[in-house]
Design a protein around this nucleic acid. Structure first.
Length: 894
RNA sequence: GCUCGAGUGGUGAAAUUGGUAAACACGCCAGACUUAGGAUCUGGUGCCUAGCGGCUUGAGGGUUCGAGUCCCUCCCCGAGCACCA
């Protein structure tokens, strides 16, 4: 290090100390004497600028928003994060920045903007962490939230932090529990002991949706079937409403398609086949009643309840062996498409109601018990699976549909003209479906029917870290006596039909808590492991589980403290299952509107004002589950009148694309390609991070991170800085008189940036900002009028630098309240236009035409004067001349 | 297997939806300034060709005066569904 350098370095350090001192002085005296208006740094020192303005916004409540009927509202919602222990991921700010740009743009355009943030903090990882470390999930979760909040705040979003919500806060989950009780009251919640996915690795039950090809979605552990009592929500009741609601909403097509596929509505018929020699009938569901005459066997799932009863004597052994084998198979084995289709005959026949023909009943595990009636009519000629099975087992194949081109290859699963179908011969498939269904209805052997792939939602989890389900189980005898009591006080959420289950020969009935019992707070424990029976860790807490209830007063006391004995008191056990993580995220969009309302889940006047989010952004991984469940609850709340403003919660939805690592693969710790937002902010600042994430490419595309790319936007910010601030740290003075060229680029930029923001094309908006600065720089700097306008349109993208420069220009209030500049459309059009001249479709020259005053002939004449054009036309005759308005002319020769 | 979405320079990507392909940025090359800088500024940069010129949007066809954009057939990548009768 040279001595001169050393000296400078020392001086700089000294200056910094003095500055630090004066800074402290400023802070100390702010309230009394004056507020420091801006950072005032010489160079683009984002490390000073960004915290300063973040503090400014916080202290001035810049983004706190109130219901204000004098202004139009705009509600921008992010999918709230699960605050994981690894901190904010670089993907989080992508969506948040997008919604923030929209929020700030709308605000500048006079909207009253709500842009909130919160935490989806219940969930498995905190519980796993607790099992591993013994640290309570509540503590761990609070710490993670602390980190997330700090990280998100460091990016400078226009978030109203006074509305922050947390799904694990009893004030919040009080209403999650309340919604559950409403579902119960309206007959949409029930319990059932049924096979569910049990994951030994997670020690928990998983929903169908959380199991991916035989393994848990989270953790990738193997799963198996197990019978457990579960709470189940009747989402199937809403299948049609959920389907219909997709019509009017602005969502990505792929997401709508996924939901439609998930609901999986099909039209067809239920057909009953009489069992030969029995009184029983086997019902099947088919979408192709037109192929009924081609049914050559009937196949039932191994779980089918009639199987045991109808199997013929000599076949019973093979059938029960087959049933045992399929029980042992994992679902993965059973649903493996590559495997051969197995099955055994039952020796029993059924009668085809169409033609009276006897066809054999088989048991085959390619028939799923969970769909339709667990039995199918098999038409090998017109179904690939049945064809494969029939070929393998030597079952006859009868063709009943001719396709239009006379193709004879089977199986043919398309439509066509009926043959071998008696009176229905000659009909086309669609007609035949109607007619055959009518015929069956007349014979009372079937009727038209719809089916759905959607199953009811298994809503309980055998976990600690979730919302407690506010139910007490009491014996049927106590329940019956209690509701017969004239003074019965527990009826607030009582369903018309009691929810019951059998346990050790005793019927238990669900007694819902009352509103005043909510929130039912999650009790503390130190044992987070489930019981051996697969019950939740809550089952260990006897003092919490066992209660006595006074059915006349609603008073509930722990049984260990109960010493009375009069007849109004009954004993019960609290439900120990908790709700799944989806519960809290089903309605949070409503809570932000009035986060502190104690008396209702959302204050009606706030709900009336904010209605529903105008923009909702989050990952495509939630295309089905969260977005379907949230729609279900929202619809339900609408139906019971709890909310009055719209059936659909999210009218405009967008999915941001995943940001990949620099190597083009998904970021992961194991690959070592994780980018930490904190490090980016430390090195380039939050504005550069925001700008870069938006500049990377189209918002909805998957795109790789590139460390060098961020240098580019950082350079841009420095360039902007030096256009406003000279080498001494003083604000430049701007020339008042702009050239036509400057006016053009200024107006173009205002127009394009505004348009691109609304179209979510942030990458091209930023590119326009860059073009604009480059042009201004070459023209000798910003002109006076446009300098301020430029900062206003930069502000949504890079709010900190925009505030600092805005203040340095002498403005006294935040740029957030400075509005959005207007543009002069007439200035955007340039006086002379350049037109491409093509010969036979290839560009050969370019000419410029002044104004719009030239006639077509003049333009052609001008074009032909061009030497290169003339050369390419040569002696050939021009057979056609094309003039595309103001863009291109084309001479066609031959 | 089915259903979508995509494929454009060395790289991330633009392209007013049928009208001058490659804007903007990265990288690279050359230069200026610089006794220092996590610098900055200027010019160049699709490919082939010494040049004239020719060729270029995964491949091949087609429609059109004109195709990255529309149609057909493939190839490859990504996502979702996956025996749903």
């Amino acid at each position: 290090m040279s001595s001169i350098f050393l000296k400078k370095f020392q001086i700089m350090r000294g200056a910094k100390q003095i500055f630090g001192f004066t800074k402290a002085l400023h802070y100390g005296m702010r309230r009394v004497l004056f507020a420091r208006m801006n950072v005032g740094c010489k160079r683009y020192d984002f490390r000073e600028i960004e915290p300063f303005w973040q503090k400014f916004w916080e202290e001035h409540g810049t983004f706190c928003v109130r219901d204000d009927n004098s202004k139009e509202k705009y509600y921008a919602l992010d999918m709230f994060p699960y605050p994981s222990g690894s901190g904010l991921h670089i993907g989080h700010p992508e969506g948040y920045t997008a919604s923030d740009i929209l929020a700030r743009h709308r605000r500048a355009n006079g909207f009253n903007v709500l842009h909130p943030m919160g935490w989806d903090a219940f969930g498995l990882p905190a519980e796993q962490h607790a099992i591993a470390t013994g640290i309570a999930p509540a503590i761990n979760s609070a710490q993670n939230i602390e980190v997330f909040r700090k990280q998100i705040k460091s990016i400078g979003f226009a978030i109203d932090w006074s509305r922050e919500i947390n799904t694990t806060d009893p004030h919040y989950y009080k209403w999650t529990q309340w919604i559950f009780l409403q579902l119960l009251k309206h007959g949409l919640a029930y319990v059932d002991e049924r096979p569910v996915w049990w994951c030994d690795g997670l020690k928990s039950v998983l929903a169908n949706e959380e199991v991916i090809s035989g393994r848990s979605e989270r953790g990738n552990f193997p799963v198996q079937r197990r019978n457990l009592r579960q709470w189940i929500l009747r989402i199937t009741e809403y299948a049609d409403k959920l389907l219909d609601g997709l019509d009017g909403i602005d969502w990505p097509d792929s997401t709508k398609r996924q939901q439609i596929a998930w609901i999986g509505k099909s039209n067809g018929a239920n057909i009953r086949f009489k069992v030969d020699g029995h009184d029983d009938e086997i019902a099947v569901y088919t979408t192709r009643p037109d192929t009924l005459f081609g049914a050559t066997y009937l196949a039932v799932a191994p779980e089918h309840p009639l199987l045991e009863k109808i199997v013929a004597k000599g076949f019973a052994a093979d059938v029960s062996k087959y049933i045992e084998e399929s029980k042992r198979k994992s679902d993965m084995e059973r649903t493996d498409l590559a495997k051969v289709k197995t099955g055994v005959p039952t020796g029993t026949c059924v009668i085809n109601p169409a033609n009276g023909r006897r066809i054999e009943v088989w048991v085959a595990d390619y028939v799923l018990f969970g769909y339709g009636s667990g039995a199918i009519m098999a038409v090998p000629a017109h179904d690939e699976r049945d064809y494969e099975f029939a070929q393998r087992h030597g079952i006859p194949i009868i063709r009943v549909i001719d396709d239009s081109v006379g193709n004879s290859i089977l199986p043919y699963s398309g439509e066509g003209t009926l043959i071998n179908s008696g009176e229905f011969n000659g009909l086309f498939s669609a007609d035949a479906r109607t007619r055959i269904t009518e015929m069956l209805a007349k014979k009372r052997m079937g009727e038209a029917a719809q089916n759905y792939r959607l199953r009811d939602w298994i809503f309980s989890r055998q976990r600690y870290w979730g919302e407690p389900i506010p139910i007490v189980w009491v014996s049927a005898a106590d329940y019956g006596a209690a509701i017969a009591n004239e003074k019965f006080h527990m009826g607030e959420f009582l369903p018309d039909v009691p929810v019951c289950y059998e346990e050790n020969g005793v019927t238990q009935c669900a007694l819902p808590l009352r509103s005043e019992h909510l929130p039912l707070v999650l009790p503390n424990t130190s044992n987070y492991l489930p019981s051996d029976g697969g019950e939740s860790p809550l089952a260990h807490i006897a003092s919490w589980v066992n209660v006595h209830i006074n059915v006349e007063t609603g008073e509930i006391v722990p049984s260990e403290n109960f010493n009375g004995a009069d007849g109004h008191w009954i004993s019960g056990r609290r439900e120990t299952n908790t709700m799944p993580q989806w519960a809290g995220s089903c309605w949070y969009h409503l809570r932000y509107m009035s986060p502190n309302c104690e008396t209702q889940l959302v204050d009606p006047s706030s709900a009336e004002y904010w209605k529903s989010p105008d923009f909702y952004i989050g990952g495509a991984e939630h295309a089905v589950l969260h977005l379907l469940y949230a729609r279900f609850w929202h619809r339900f709340l609408f139906d019971i009148g709890a909310i009055k403003t719209g059936k659909e919660p999210f009218r405009k939805l967008f999915h941001q694309g995943i940001i990949l690592g620099e190597d083009g693969t998904k970021m992961s710790k194991s690959r070592g390609n994780v980018i930490n937002p904190d490090e980016i902010i430390a090195r380039y600042g939050a504005d550069a991070l925001r700008l870069y994430e938006m500049f990377l490419g189209p918002l909805d595309m998957m795109k790789p991170w590139n460390m060098r790319g961020i240098e580019g936007v950082f350079r841009f910010l420095k360039k902007v800085w030096s256009e406003f601030i000279d080498g001494d740290g003083n604000c430049r003075t701007f020339a008042p008189c702009p050239s036509a060229e400057c006016q053009k680029i200024a107006n173009e930029t205002i127009k394009k940036v505004g348009d691109d923001i609304e179209a979510l094309k942030f990458n091209t908006a930023i590119s326009q900002l860059m073009i604009c600065v480059n042009t201004m720089q070459k023209a000798g700097g910003f002109c006076k009028n446009f300098a301020e306008s430029f900062l206003k349109i930069l502000a949504p993208f890079a709010p900190h630098i925009a505030e600092e420069l805005w203040s340095r220009l002498g403005n006294k209030s935040s740029i957030v309240d400075a509005g959005w500049p207007t543009y002069d459309a007439s200035k955007v059009v340039s006086r002379s236009r350049r037109i491409a001249i093509q010969v036979n479709g290839k560009v050969r020259a370019e000419c410029s035409m002044d104004d719009g005053n030239m006639s077509e002939d003049d333009i052609f004449k001008l074009a032909l004067e061009n030497a290169n054009v003339a050369r390419h036309i040569a002696e050939k005759a021009i057979i056609k001349k094309i003039y595309a308005n103001g863009k291109v002319i084309n001479f066609v020769t031959e």
